[in-house]
C-alpha cells in the first residue's frame, strides 16, 4: 500500500516541519561556509609563506580535520567542550563551529593549491613594481588564483550540505531528525512512512546538491578547455 503512504508528507504540519528542519541545516551550512571560507583564505595564504613553524602547525591542523571523520569531530566538540572546558554551546552552535573549522581546513588546501599554481614570474613581476607582501596577494596572486579555486569550493559546499545530515547525531532538530519524529508519530496510521519521508529527504538533498555540482563541473570543463 505504498501509494497511500505519501499522505504522511502532507498530514498536519508535517511538510512545513520538514522544510523548517531543512532550513536549520541550510542555516548551519551557510554560516559555517562563510566563516570557513574566509578563514580558509587566510590560512591558505599563510601556508604559502616560508615560515616552517607556521606551515607545520597549519598542516597538522589540516591533517587533523582530514583524518578524523566528521561524525567524530562533532562528538569531540559536543562532548568535550562543555565537560572539560566548561563551555556550554547549543548543538547548533557546536555544529557551526565544527563545520567552519573543517571548511577552513579544506579551504586552506584549495587556496594554497591555487596560489602555488600561479606562475612564479607573476609574483616576481609584482615585486618588481614595488608591491609589498599583502598587496602582492591582494592584487596579483589571489585574483589569478580565484578562478582555479571556485570549482573545488563549490564542491566543498555540496560536501558541507551533505554532511549536515549528520546533525541529528548531536540532537540538532534538522530535517532528518524531524523526519524520524514524523515517522515515529505516524507509525500507526502510516506504516510505510519511512519510505516516503526518507524518500522526500533524499530528493531534497539531491535538489540542493545537484545544481551546485553541475555548476562546478561546468566551470571545470570550461577551465580545461581554456587551458
Amino acid at each position: 500500500m505504498a501509494h497511500s503512504g505519501i499522505n504522511i508528507l502532507f498530514a498536519g504540519q508535517n511538510f512545513t516541519r520538514l522544510l523548517g528542519g531543512l532550513w536549520v541545516s541550510a542555516k548551519i551550512s551557510i554560516v559555517s561556509l562563510v566563516i570557513g571560507i574566509l578563514l580558509g583564505l587566510l590560512l591558505g595564504a599563510l601556508r604559502t609563506l616560508k615560515n616552517p613553524v607556521l606551515r607545520t602547525i597549519l598542516r597538522l591542523y589540516l591533517e587533523f580535520f582530514r583524518i578524523v571523520p566528521t561524525v567524530v569531530l562533532l562528538f569531540l566538540f559536543y562532548y568535550i567542550l562543555p565537560k572539560n572546558f566548561n563551555v556550554n554551546l547549543s548543538a547548533q552552535i557546536v555544529a557551526m563551529l565544527v563545520f567552519a573549522l573543517w571548511v577552513a581546513a579544506e579551504m586552506s588546501d584549495i587556496v594554497r593549491g591555487a596560489l602555488i599554481s600561479v606562475p612564479r614570474h607573476q609574483k616576481e613581476a609584482g615585486m618588481a613594481i614595488g608591491l609589498n607582501g599583502p598587496q602582492l596577494y591582494r592584487y596579483v596572486l589571489l585574483p589569478q588564483a580565484v578562478g582555479l579555486m571556485i570549482p573545488a569550493t563549490i564542491n566543498l559546499m555540496t560536501r558541507v550540505i551533505k554532511t549536515t545530515s549528520l546533525l541529528l547525531l548531536i540532537s540538532v532538530m534538522d530535517v532528518v531528525n524531524i523526519g524520524q519524529q514524523i515517522i515515529e508519530a505516524n507509525r500507526q496510521v502510516y506504516p510505510n512512512g519511512a519510505f516516503w519521508v526518507y524518500g522526500l529527504i533524499f530528493i531534497l538533498y539531491f535538489l540542493l546538491c545537484y545544481p551546485l555540482s553541475a555548476w562546478a563541473r561546468h566551470l571545470e570543463r570550461r577551465q580545461n578547455n581554456n587551458a
Partner: peptide, 11 residues
C-alpha cells in the same frame, strides 16, 4: 554523489 550516505543508509 549528490545525496548523503546517512540518508542512503536510512533508505
Amino acid at each position: 554523489r549528490n545525496t548523503p550516505l546517512l540518508i542512503q543508509l536510512f533508505f
